[in-house]
Amino acid sequence: MRYTEDETGLLNNFAVEPKMYEAEPPSGNEKRNYIILGSVAASLVVGLFAIAASVS
């Protein structure tokens, strides 16, 4: 376990640091999926606003 001890005998515990890694850029297929899901979400929001406007 990683810890330090000061001159009075108190211990300071430190968390174990996770391994670092570089994120990979999205592939063409992932980009296409993001566009499709974004357009579905946007159309759902627009549809809900249209329903709320027509009901009120």
Results as ranks from 00 to 15, higher is better:
residue 3 Y to C: 08
residue 37 L to S: 12
residue 28 G to D: 12
residue 15 A to Y: 04
residue 28 G to F: 04
residue 51 I to S: 01
residue 5 E to K: 04
residue 24 E to Q: 10
residue 51 I to R: 02
residue 11 L to I: 01
residue 11 L to Y: 12
residue 13 N to H: 06
residue 44 L to V: 15
residue 43 S to P: 03
residue 47 G to T: 03
residue 36 I to E: 13
residue 6 D to P: 00
residue 31 K to I: 10
residue 26 P to G: 00
residue 40 V to T: 06
residue 30 E to G: 01
residue 15 A to S: 05
residue 42 A to W: 02
residue 16 V to S: 05
residue 41 A to G: 07
residue 34 Y to K: 04
residue 29 N to W: 10
residue 27 S to L: 02
residue 32 R to N: 09
residue 56 S to N: 13
residue 54 S to C: 14
residue 24 E to M: 05
residue 43 S to F: 11
residue 53 A to S: 13
residue 33 N to Q: 14
residue 16 V to D: 06
residue 55 V to C: 11
residue 32 R to V: 13
residue 3 Y to P: 07
residue 7 E to H: 10
residue 56 S to E: 06
residue 51 I to Q: 01
residue 49 F to G: 14
residue 16 V to Q: 04
residue 52 A to W: 11
residue 37 L to M: 14
residue 9 G to M: 06
residue 11 L to H: 07
residue 29 N to H: 11
residue 53 A to T: 15
residue 13 N to F: 14
residue 40 V to P: 08
residue 39 S to W: 03
residue 52 A to G: 09
residue 35 I to G: 05
residue 53 A to E: 04
residue 24 E to S: 04
residue 27 S to M: 02
residue 22 E to Y: 05
residue 17 E to V: 11
residue 9 G to N: 09
residue 53 A to R: 09
residue 20 M to W: 15
residue 6 D to C: 00
residue 14 F to I: 02
residue 30 E to L: 03
residue 3 Y to E: 14
residue 26 P to H: 01
residue 31 K to S: 07
residue 4 T to F: 07
residue 31 K to Q: 09
residue 51 I to L: 06
residue 21 Y to K: 11
residue 34 Y to D: 09
residue 8 T to Y: 15
residue 51 I to D: 00
residue 24 E to P: 02
residue 29 N to V: 06
residue 33 N to R: 11
residue 35 I to T: 09
residue 48 L to M: 14
residue 55 V to H: 13
residue 9 G to A: 05
residue 36 I to T: 09
residue 17 E to P: 13
residue 42 A to F: 06
residue 36 I to A: 04
residue 43 S to V: 08
residue 52 A to S: 10
residue 29 N to Q: 10
residue 33 N to D: 15
residue 49 F to T: 15
residue 19 K to E: 15
residue 30 E to W: 08
residue 27 S to W: 01
residue 1 M to Q: 12
residue 43 S to N: 13
residue 1 M to W: 09
residue 15 A to M: 08
residue 45 V to G: 00
residue 39 S to M: 09
residue 16 V to I: 12
residue 44 L to T: 05
residue 11 L to M: 04
residue 48 L to I: 14
residue 1 M to F: 09
residue 31 K to M: 09
residue 51 I to E: 01
residue 10 L to D: 07
residue 17 E to N: 10
residue 45 V to Y: 00
residue 5 E to C: 03
residue 7 E to P: 11
residue 40 V to M: 07
residue 7 E to V: 02
residue 22 E to P: 05
residue 20 M to K: 12
residue 31 K to W: 12
residue 38 G to M: 01
residue 3 Y to L: 10
residue 19 K to R: 06
residue 1 M to R: 14
residue 24 E to L: 08
residue 54 S to P: 02
residue 22 E to F: 08
residue 56 S to Q: 12
residue 25 P to S: 06
residue 18 P to D: 00
residue 27 S to N: 01
residue 44 L to F: 15
residue 2 R to K: 15
residue 30 E to K: 02
residue 30 E to A: 04
residue 7 E to D: 14
residue 15 A to L: 05
residue 24 E to K: 06
residue 4 T to N: 10
residue 23 A to H: 15
residue 20 M to Q: 13
residue 37 L to K: 05
residue 39 S to H: 10
residue 52 A to P: 05
residue 15 A to T: 05
residue 34 Y to E: 06
residue 4 T to Y: 06
residue 20 M to Y: 14
residue 2 R to D: 13
residue 6 D to H: 02
residue 39 S to K: 09
residue 50 A to Q: 04
residue 46 V to Q: 05
residue 10 L to A: 15
